[in-house]
Amino acid sequence: MNSPALADIELSGVGKTFESEGREVVAIERIDLAVAPGEFVSILGPSGCGKTTALRMIAGLVEPSLGDVAIFGTPLWNRGRRNDAALARLGVVFQEPRLFPWFTIEDNVALPLRLRGQGEAARRRRAGELCELVGIGGFAKHRPNELSGGMRQRAAIARALAGDPRILLMDEPFGALDAITRDQMNLELQRIWRATGCTILLVTHSISEAVFLADRVVTLSLRPSRVHRVRRIDFQHPRDPDLPTDPAFQTIVRAIKHELAELGR
């Protein structure tokens, strides 16, 4: 494992147990994982294995029951208190767009800047650029309800990018999209990743998506939920849209598919 100072995200011996109605539910048994700066890591695993929980612990939304989460080498939790400074350069994209329906797309995208006290003109300019970047340039003045699901998810990505994150956490961000839009979004995400150089941790149910985008693919097992295997994906970046037709690519996808089928039992 890398030394903590070199990793952007480091989970050491992280476990999470939920208490609900007196019963204990072990969401995560133990995860050790270090993500290097600028790295793209995908996480795959059977439903209920704790992918969302892991991401939420890194995002500072729930505290681990065991172990430590470190962001840029700084511990995220300190006896129940969250280290907010460690989260300042972190962007999160949830499974749902989670846009504020009373704001325009532009104001939604600029929300992180507003929270940092940036002036309106600067905010507007940056939000405009980001909307262009994610391909919804013409919709800056619209309300979220006037956009399609895919466009809303693009807006959510633009909002996460607005805070200039060094780390981007994404929980099945394209789960609700049709296959073609999804492929487009994958290409955009690859472009954004290369343009910004940020570290990305992507949870997904699409094996092909995971392999296409990532430097490494992590599979989690269910009961006990642990890291099952970490695979390095060696295809050259940027990856060609036709890469999924490559036999080598298909071999990896098939192997992971069999592995997940085993893990889901």
Binding site: A59, D84, L87, F94, R98, G163
Partner: peptide, 10 residues
């Protein structure tokens, strides 16, 4: 969900 968005933005 919207609360969490605010939380992750500090």
């Amino acid at each position: 969900g919207l609360r969490e968005v605010m939380t992750t933005m500090n």
